[in-house]
């Protein structure tokens, strides 16, 4: 009996392994093509391991060619890291304020903030664009960072965690003479650290992958982030698929690393809040 269950489980595992490999084939194809010479890209049957490797030259062209990825990488890292940090701070402050400090209209203000979450970002693009043009934030990293810094989702997620902190803790600290700032900094924040890590990783991934905001709010070539650069690179190198695949691998790689490091937080965070970028 136990044996037959073991065998069944092993068979299903093998079947699922085959399914997941098929599922991931586009990634495998991308990786293998990025190392090929152009003439071999569409050779059939598909060469999963390139016979003639041109990987070094492909990646050199992507990183230091006409559209040098190291510039866009630096831009993207800058925008993503700063956005993530600012967004975490703003969300954590608001989440604490909305959950642990009582002030008039607190509930009402929170409902308003929460309600803005259902607004499709595309529905407010035009006024945002006009506003940014008027106040001089158009075509700057600062503007792009501002756009990603006020996350309703982050506030909502962190608020859930702050609410789980027992009020007795906070009352006790108050009696000891601690103000809200001290309580926030030395009691509440350390308790919700895992939640902050989860949200930080998710925000990092979403900002790195953001295509729409840089497309609309950036113009100058030297300011572009990796997603837009990737598309421009594709347009320019039209038929050089090996180069395009090398660019695609370069665009995805940092995320894969972040994801594998923070795998547990990401999956738990998604499952917990049912969050979606």
């Amino acid at each position: 009996m136990a044996n037959s269950i073991l065998i069944k489980k092993s068979i299903i595992t093998v079947v699922m392994l085959v399914c997941s490999v098929l599922f991931l084939l586009p990634f495998v194809w991308m990786l293998s093509t990025s190392f090929k010479i152009e003439a071999d890209v569409f050779k059939f049957p598909i060469q999963w391991i390139p016979e003639r490797s041109n990987g070094f030259n492909n990646y050199k062209e992507v990183w230091f060619g006409d559209y040098p990825f190291y510039v866009y990488y630096w831009n993207t890292i800058k925008v993503t890291v700063i956005t993530t940090c600012v967004s975490v701070v703003v969300s954590a402050l608001a989440a604490y304020g909305f959950s642990k400090v009582k002030f008039p209209f607190g509930k009402f203000l929170f409902m308003i903030v929460l309600a803005t979450y259902m607004v499709p970002p595309q529905a407010i693009l035009v006024p945002q664009f006009i506003l940014f043009r008027k106040i001089g934030l158009f075509d700057s990293h600062f503007g792009l960072i501002l756009l990603g810094s006020f996350s309703v989702l982050g506030t909502f997620m962190l608020r859930q965690f702050f609410m789980s902190i027992h009020n007795d803790y906070i009352e006790a600290a108050k009696i000891d003479g601690a103000g809200h700032w001290r309580i926030f900094w030395s009691i509440a924040l350390p308790i919700v650290k895992p939640a902050i890590a989860t949200y930080g990783i998710l925000r990092f991934i979403w900002t790195w992958n953001d295509y729409q905001n840089p497309l609309i709010f950036l113009r100058t070539d030297s300011l572009l982030t990796i997603q837009i650069a990737m598309q421009k690179f594709t347009t320019i190198n039209g038929e050089f698929y090996s180069l395009i695949m090398a660019a695609a691998v370069s665009a995805i790689l940092p995320l894969v690393i972040v994801f594998i490091i923070g795998q547990k937080q990401v999956i738990e965070g998604i499952a917990l809040g049912g969050v979606k970028g």
Binding site: F23, L24, F27, M245, I252, I267
Partner: peptide, 19 residues
Amino acid sequence: FKVAFFMPYISSVVAIAVV
């Protein structure tokens, strides 16, 4: 399996679209 099936979701849509 969780990681494998989750891969496309975390990957950049632009890169995926191009592939």
